[in-house]
Design a protein around this nucleic acid. Structure first.
Lengths: 144, 144
DNA sequence: TTTCCTCCTTAGAATCCTTCTAAATTGTTG
DNA sequence: CAACAATTTAGAAGGATTCTAAGGAGGAAA
């Protein structure tokens, strides 16, 4: 039984994950997948991930970070969240849930799925079907 | 009794509206307010409004359109809606309602308030209060 | 109405985030 | 290992929005 470092384990898992999604497990994609999916779920921007990669000495260009994030969204590995205009946030939690958005800090915070109960939805207009229902609760500072 | 053209009536209404919101009724703000608030509610971008102003021969710079839109949001005359990353939409309907977002066309469509019923919301985190609850229902093309 | 002061508008540059480009590299398959 | 297609890259390009510094306009008071 070959000895393995933890890093390699993670790398292998990431590889499988990518292959399962139909994405070639390149060095860059594996590295980014490790950063994204090892550890707890969180929200980040492309720049955030680019900085993390640099810190982790994973050599990758910003263009590839953008490409990879979109491919991961496409593949269902990530979700894109709308919070602020002019900046895209990505959520490593792809399960069905909603968000608080702290208007003062620009921070996103998860809301567990069952904390929001939607009792009625309209029918989709002709020719369309409902893809996803996204609830964002904007938060202001308390003493306003 | 002085004779008045319809335009002037609208202009007077817009002036009052601006004054009530604490905004000086400048030529540009009055013009934009007329474009925005005469006629049915709708969604538009800064560029849309800039083009409408040009078409209506209201001389105003793009910078002022942006400034004015934000001031109107601040004053509660408009709402900003999140739909696509990288582009801000403004909604002339400030009443409580939600939106369909057509993923293929980028179009926003209003949902009457009572078509979405939210039965439970989480409490706001410590130090914050809930500002607004925004529901966006993403629509895909039907045959997908 | 004239003055004065402040707020507002402006054109253009600047900035920010994101995508594109064309060339070099890498993964995969035979 | 060769060959091919997919991927990565740096830098340029793009689009939306904000900033800047200067001139212009509202309106309160004289």
């Amino acid at each position: 039984m070959p000895k393995r470092r933890l890093d390699n384990d993670f790398a292998l898992k990431a590889q499988d994950r990518l292959r399962a999604a139909g994405l070639r497990p390149t060095r860059q994609r594996v590295g980014l997948a490790q950063l994204l999916f090892n550890g707890p779920c969180r929200h980040l921007t492309a720049e955030d991930l680019f900085a993390e990669a640099a810190a982790a000495e994973i050599s990758v260009s910003l263009a590839t970070v953008y490409n990879t994030l979109h491919q991961f969204v496409e593949a269902g590995l990530l979700r894109e969240v709308l919070a602020e205009p002019g900046r895209a946030y990505f959520d490593t939690d792809v399960s069905n849930h909603h968000h608080f958005f702290h208007a003062d800090t620009g921070m996103l915070q998860d809301i567990p799925e069952d904390a929001v109960v939607i009792a009625a939805l309209p029918a989709a207009p002709e020719g369309a079907r409902i893809g996803r229902v996204e609830v964002v609760i904007r938060l202001e500072k308390a003493g306003a």
